[in-house]
Structure formats: structure tokens, C-alpha cells
């Protein structure tokens, strides 16, 4: 796939650039858009965004590599982000993590061979009332047990 936004995406970029008094302030939004369009932010995408926004590639790379939600490697169809910070940890996140590692046969940071699941542990998701919590792509699921987690994963397409 060539690294280039389509017309609709370019329209969004132009809108974003007008959004802020300084052009480079739109970088974060443009990177989110690029990730949606291209799946992850490869060096080619960084170069493309830099060219589009007339910014040094090194600057774009600095920003991309500072934040965890900008993906520098492809992830599976379902990106599992299990919180294991304090509230989730003391409510059983460790057991869920063990279960996921065994069930999927991958380590934290890994992706299953069929490209279906990527497993991450993440910092506090801000939903501690439902600890332990997992984020799958853009949705939160809470009050998990290993059984509920199994049902959740088995119910995915």
C-alpha cells in the first residue's frame, strides 16, 4: 500500500492545520489519522507526515516515539491491553495475564502467528471501579475473571 492520504483524509488534514494557531500543533492529530489510515507509524509514514507538514523527520520521530499509543510496529486484529497497575493488580490482573499468555501462546508485546491478537500490559486505564480491566482496540471491559475473559475473546469475530 502506498503511503499517501486519500482526498477525504487530505481534507481532514487541511482542517486540522487550521485548527491551531501553529501548524506543528496539529502533528498529534495528524499522527492519529495516519495510524488509522496506515495501521501503524512506520519510518515511511513518519517521512510522509514530515513532508506533508513541512517538519523535520527527526522531529516527527521524536514525537512518535515519546507516546505509547502511536504504534511503531503492526498489531493484531485485536489489540489486548490489560491493565496491571495497582487497583487491577490487587484484583487479579496477574492471573488474567498468565491465562492470556497460555491461551494465546505469546509473551507480552507479542502477536499470535495468525495475526489475530497482540498482547500488551498497560498502565492505569482510569476505570479502576471495574478492576481488573482490559482494553480491546477502542473498548473497555471490566470486572473480569478468567471465565469472563474467555467468553469475551471467544465471542470476537
Amino acid at each position: 500500500m502506498p503511503v499517501a492520504f486519500n482526498d477525504q483524509q487530505m481534507k481532514t488534514v487541511r482542517h486540522l492545520l487550521e485548527h491551531y494557531p501553529r501548524k506543528n500543533a496539529a502533528l498529534g492529530d495528524v499522527l492519529h489519522l495516519a495510524q488509522e489510515a496506515f495501521g501503524h507509524l512506520s519510518p515511511e509514514v513518519e517521512e510522509y507526515v514530515a513532508g506533508l507538514m513541512e517538519l523535520p523527520v527527526s522531529y516527527v520521530h521524536q514525537v512518535v516515539s515519546f507516546y505509547t499509543l502511536y504504534l511503531r510496529k503492526p498489531v493484531g486484529k485485536y489489540h489486548l491491553m490489560l491493565c496491571d497497575n495497582v487497583s487491577c493488580m490487587i484484583c487479579g490482573a496477574g492471573e488474567l495475564l498468565e491465562h492470556l499468555r497460555k491461551k494465546l501462546g505469546i509473551e507480552v508485546g507479542g502477536t499470535t502467528a495468525d495475526g489475530r491478537f497482540t498482547l500488551w500490559t498497560v498502565e492505569c486505564l482510569g476505570a479502576c471501579e471495574a478492576a481488573p480491566v482490559i482494553m480491546i482496540n477502542d473498548k473497555y471491559y471490566g470486572s473480569l475473571t478468567t471465565r469472563k475473559l474467555d467468553e469475551l475473546l471467544d465471542g470476537l469475530e
Partner: peptide, 20 residues
């Protein structure tokens, strides 16, 4: 939208992030 960095909750870091 932020992009995953606890430090951006600190007000001056938030401003840096908002400025791109």
C-alpha cells in the same frame, strides 16, 4: 486526543503536548 503518556497530565507537559 493525547497519545498515551502519564506525564501529559502535568499542566506544562500537557501544554507542550498540545503544542505538538
Amino acid at each position: 486526543r493525547g497519545a498515551g503518556a502519564y506525564i501529559c497530565g502535568e499542566e506544562t507537559a500537557l501544554l507542550s503536548s498540545l503544542e505538538g
